[in-house]
Every structure is written in structure tokens, then in C-alpha cells.
Design a protein around this nucleic acid. Structure first.
Lengths: 132, 132
DNA sequence: ACTTGACCTTCCAACGATGGCAAGGTTCAG
DNA sequence: CTGAACCTTGCCATCGTTGGAAGGTCAAGT
């Protein structure tokens, strides 16, 4: 299977497959005589794993660990730990975004939105307190 | 006022002040004979505006618009519109992160976390459904 | 055989916002 | 005059992903 087929089968773009290879996230693919990479079903499986982990917001570093935990059948403890750390990260980001959204909502509510220029949103950005 | 003073006064690093200048977010600073940039109080004010807008999660492109709305005293309508669009963005990001976090929470709950390798988190990434 | 189009290769660059470092010039106080 | 603190430009790195350019390969149609 060439890289294009592997890409379609896994949902990871050929571009990214090559990239993952260069950063060492996946092992170097076998090559044909003419230099084409070729892939097996298990490589596609791995790529799909990576794609799903990316969708879950794991960083490539984390995915690297997850992959080794997966492929070496390490104790679930470690996986759980990693996932829990990531979850804490996610929650922190959510909380931060929420407080920004909350402040912005307030400001928008208080803006008349008409043709006059005065606007609490701008006033807030310009002046008193940061929009947090 | 030199760039360092402007940086301290505005909370924007000197690095970023130069960067904002190169990308055209702020106008080119006046220079001394020896090439030092120098700033007025109103520049600091502008920088503070930018810093607050960044903290509120606006992109530089959006900030560029906000700045011109602010400085040209355009109708509040336009500001409100821009802020509302940004808010929708924020909310979409929050929603997405929340659904990821929710799925991950589920998976973590179902993981025994012990020394055996089998783990629903890995199973999920490897197999059936994406972690959304 | 030959052309064509789809595919593959590598390398280089960009996004957005920021930090860091290096090599060199300037300013000011001691 | 020297040293510290400041400034200048420029390049590199992050992180994940995408795009392009220039060129080689393959398979199908003529």
C-alpha cells in the first residue's frame, strides 16, 4: 500500500504521515525500489490510533507515550495517569475560555450596538480592567 | 520613552512591540538619531489596548479591526458585531473541548488503572469510535 | 513505444504569538 | 574610560498542519 492509500485508509494526510515519520512518531516506512513508502494494515491501524488521539487533543509527545504504552502493553495505570493529566489540561483551558466568554458576554450585553461610537467593549479594552 | 519603558508601562514585551510593528498592527515608531524607537503615552495606551484584546482571545486580525474602530470612533454596532463573532468562536471552542473532556472522563472512569495492560482508553483510540 | 495524468519523492516556507540568543551599537553613571 | 543597562537587527525554536515547487515513477490509454 502506498502512502496515498494509507492516508485514505487511516484518515491521516500523506503530508502528515511523512511528518510523523520525520519527527519519529512512527517508524520509518519500508520503501520500494523506486523509493515509494509502503504500508501494511498494522501501520494504518497505528495511524488511525494517532488520528484519534489527536482528535482527543493529545499532543504528539503524549501520543508518542500512548503509542508505546499501547504497543508494549504496559500497565493501564500509566495510560490512565497520562489521560488524567491531559484531562486536567483540557479542563484548565475550558475554564479559561469560559471566563473570557463570560466577560465578553457581559460587555456585549451592555453595548447599545447603535450608531454612536461609545461602547463598553472598547472602553474595557482601552481602559479599566482586562477582559477576564 | 524607549521601547523598554513602553514595554513595562504597557505590559507588552519589547519583542512583541517590535513584532506588532513589523506586522503593521501598530504604526512604525519614531526613531532617535541613533535608531532607538521612542514612544508617547498614547502609544502605551494603544499597546495596553492590544494586550487586553489579546487576553480576551482576539486574534491580531481582529485586533487590527478593533483598533481602527476604536481610534476612528466608529459606531458601536460594528464593535458589537465583531465581539459577537468572536464570542461565537469562543463558545464553539469551549463546546468542542467540553465534549472531548467529557469523553475522556468516561474513558478514565472505566479504566481500572491497575497493572494489567487492558485499558478502555487505548481500546478507544485504537479501535471503535473516535474519542469524541 | 509514447503520452498523459495520477501518484510519489524531497525540500522549503508559512501560519500565530512568543521566547531566546547572538553580535553589535548607544547611553549614562561612576 | 569603563561597565551596566539598554537598544538594534536577525535568526532559530516552538506546535501542528498545510501549501507549493521541482522532479521522479507508475499505470492506463492510444
Amino acid at each position: 500500500m502506498n502512502i496515498g492509500q494509507a492516508a485514505r485508509a487511516s484518515g491521516v494526510s500523506a503530508k502528515m504521515i511523512r511528518h510523523y515519520e520525520t519527527i519519529g512518531l512512527i517508524v520509518k516506512a519500508a520503501r520500494s525500489l523506486s523509493g515509494y513508502r509502503h504500508y501494511q494494515a498494522r501501520d494504518v491501524h497505528t495511524l488511525r490510533f494517532i488520528r484519534r488521539a489527536r482528535m482527543a487533543g493529545f499532543s504528539t509527545v503524549q501520543i508518542k507515550k500512548l503509542l508505546s504504552l499501547w504497543q508494549d502493553r504496559q500497565p493501564a495505570r500509566e495510560v490512565k495517569q497520562l489521560a488524567a493529566e491531559h484531562l486536567i489540561d483540557l479542563q484548565a483551558r475550558i475554564t479559561e475560555l469560559e471566563s473570557i466568554a463570560q466577560a465578553l458576554t457581559q460587555l456585549i450585553e451592555h453595548c447599545h450596538g447603535g450608531e454612536r461610537p461609545e461602547c463598553p467593549i472598547l472602553d474595557n479594552l482601552a481602559g479599566d480592567e482586562p477582559a477576564r
